[in-house]
Design a protein around this nucleic acid. Structure first.
Lengths: 118, 118
DNA sequence: TACAATAGTGTATGACGTACAGTATAATAA
DNA sequence: TTATTATACTGTACGTCATACACTATTGTA
């Protein structure tokens, strides 16, 4: 049987799981490259491991939601990503989905708090 | 390459994924049995398959977050579940975690909408 | 009597973030 | 000049867990 901390840790990972894609899509309305995106999300208190982000970017591109292009003009080559047209469509709909889920959850939680406040 | 519908479907599943545990914990501050819980969540527009709920209830009990007891007084035996003390603790903390993530996500989404409205 | 509803158990599969290992080179510090 | 850090990315095995069924049993209703 796990401790409260361990259980919370893994549940928090699950909570973040789906939000990761929405987070990343939301940041790629304007083009970004991977390393910069890791840093920007860090600043916005939404930390993400580079080892998580890069595979996710590739998967989203494979699914046609992102487009990438290499910029080799700088001292280091950088792979820029931006939402494709399909990606914009998915982003808008996923945003709505998120808000629906978020609202429903808040309703459930408030109902229970009303019945039995902490 | 998948269609928008397919991609949205699987992303929506991921969005719901973590919220499932919080949803179920929130409904078990007062004791419930599985079949009734499926129906109540259906009414609250948070549908969940019975085949998803029963294994989840067992897993949460195994983790010590729920306690169960059989009620064999009715015509059909029913397994009632309720939060344990540990479960109440996890529930409160997970609720906070949810609200943090929810707020952060909303900030990210509003920032992007400000920059480039739909 | 047949079918639907009630109530639950069991489990293989697929999706995906985590947690690394790894590569390469430019920039900076010593 | 050398060592270390920062920048930037690729690759992949593993663990977790919801889904999607199959299944069982019996009560209640048509």
């Amino acid at each position: 049987m796990d401790s409260v901390g361990e259980i919370l840790g893994s549940l928090a990972v699950e909570l973040k799981r789906g939000t990761l894609v929405l987070t990343v899509l939301s940041q790629l309305i304007t083009k970004e490259y991977g390393y910069s995106l890791v840093q920007k999300l860090e600043e916005k208190k939404v930390p993400i491991e580079a080892g998580t982000l890069y595979p996710l970017l590739r998967r989203l591109e494979k699914q046609g939601l992102l487009q990438s292009e290499w910029d080799t003009g700088e001292s280091r080559p950088r792979k820029f990503y931006v939402l494709s047209e399909k990606g914009k469509d998915v982003y808008i709909q996923l945003k709505d989905e998120w808000r629906t889920i978020s609202k429903q959850m808040e309703i459930l939680l408030r109902e229970e708090e009303k019945n039995e406040p902490d």
